[in-house]
Simulated scan of single mutants.
Amino acid sequence: MDDLRRFLWFFNLLIFGVLTGVSASYANDQFIINHSESELDNRYQYTYDLLTLVIEATKADFGEASLTVSDMIMSRNRIFRALKDGQTINVIAEASKLEWDEQLIPIRIPIRKGIQGFRIFIIKQENAAALANITTLAQLTSLNTGSGSQWSTKVALQLAGFNVVESTEYDNLFNMLSKGRFVTFGRGVNEIFQEVALFKQHYPELVADEHIMLNIPLATYYYVSPNKPRLAQRIQIGLQRIIDNSQFDQLFYQHHCTYLLKSKLNQRLIFKIENPFISESEMTSIVGNDFLLNPKDDFSVLCSQYL
């Protein structure tokens, strides 16, 4: 981050604290984060661990804090409504959405460095050869693809020309893929290998495609209830601190290098499509351009420092 960006960032935090009455008094802040969408869904563990690190990094000036995972499994629309109130949950790590940006407090630091937008397809083994023969985006979009009804990537896929088959239930998408309702099911690099392994017992025919990556600009932000501005300030300050002292990268790569190496992104045919909800310039407005990962890089050297 250059000096001007750093100055503006801290100035905005100061103004934010003055306008909202947030002070650095010692208090027992209570973070209540969302439960995953399914008992088989462990995609949020990194975001829980990262928030724990943020809390630890801000104890000196914000005091003690507790982090609780809600015991309620809710759809994203229901989570959004709960966040606006801030009682049952008050923070979530989720892909950026316009409505969320406007009605919640977004912490605009992309905590997954963009890799959730590095989409690899779960497919049936019988379709592996068909995917291996694809050379154009038009060929790829001719295949039905699956998506959660409330996922922000759904709109990006539709605008790119995909016929998107939807479901409101996370687990059901794997069942629909198994039954041939669609051919491809795009998942982030941070998700796909865990999911194929987790669902292997129920759907042994599902595998990760080895040839294609669909690149969609996608930022995972922490979103905080508008009724909890102190928690938002604490998260933003804490994230910046652990980025500056390298604790962020340590945790990020420990969680993600296995998947970055296994995916062999730089050996894949990469198609990039636009996301109407966010651009890469927006994603890097606080942290700078170098913060996001480049899927064409060879991660073996970088990851050797962390594994």
Rank of each mutant, 00 (worst) to 15 (best):
T136E: 13
T136G: 00
L137C: 06
Q139D: 09
Q139L: 02
L140M: 12
L140Y: 05
T145G: 07
T145R: 04
T145A: 12
S147N: 10
G148W: 04
S149F: 12
S149A: 15
Q150P: 04
Q150D: 09
W151M: 09
W151V: 12
W151Y: 13
S152N: 15
T153Q: 10
K154D: 03
K154P: 15
A156F: 07
Q158C: 00
L159H: 09
G161Y: 00
G161T: 09
F162W: 00
F162Q: 04
V164G: 01
V164S: 00
V164L: 02
V165H: 01
E166H: 04
S167K: 02
E169Q: 15
Y170K: 03
D171Y: 01
F174A: 02
N175I: 12
N175F: 06
M176Y: 03
L177K: 06
L177W: 09
S178V: 07
K179I: 04
K179E: 13
T184D: 14
T184W: 01
F185V: 02
F185R: 01
G186V: 08
G186A: 08
R187N: 07
V189Y: 03
N190A: 13
E191V: 03
E191H: 05
I192K: 00
F193D: 12
Q194I: 13
E195K: 10
A197L: 05
A197S: 15
L198W: 09
L198R: 14
F199Y: 15
K200I: 01
K200Y: 10
Q201G: 03
H202I: 14
P204G: 01
P204M: 04
L206P: 00
A208T: 13
A208V: 15
E210V: 10
I212Q: 04
M213H: 05
L214H: 01
N215G: 11
I216C: 03
P217V: 14
P217R: 11
P217H: 10
L218P: 14
T220M: 15
T220H: 12
T220W: 14
Y221P: 03
Y221A: 10
Y222S: 03
V224N: 02
V224H: 02
S225T: 14
P226W: 06
N227C: 04
K228E: 14
P229K: 03
P229V: 04
P229T: 08
R230P: 11
R230S: 03
L231G: 00
R234Y: 12
R234C: 02
R234D: 03
Q236V: 13
Q236E: 14
I237F: 05
G238F: 08
Q240K: 15
R241D: 06
R241Y: 06
S246P: 11
Q247H: 10
F248M: 09
D249K: 08
D249P: 15
Q250R: 11
H255K: 13
H256I: 03
C257V: 06
T258V: 11
Y259H: 13
Y259L: 11
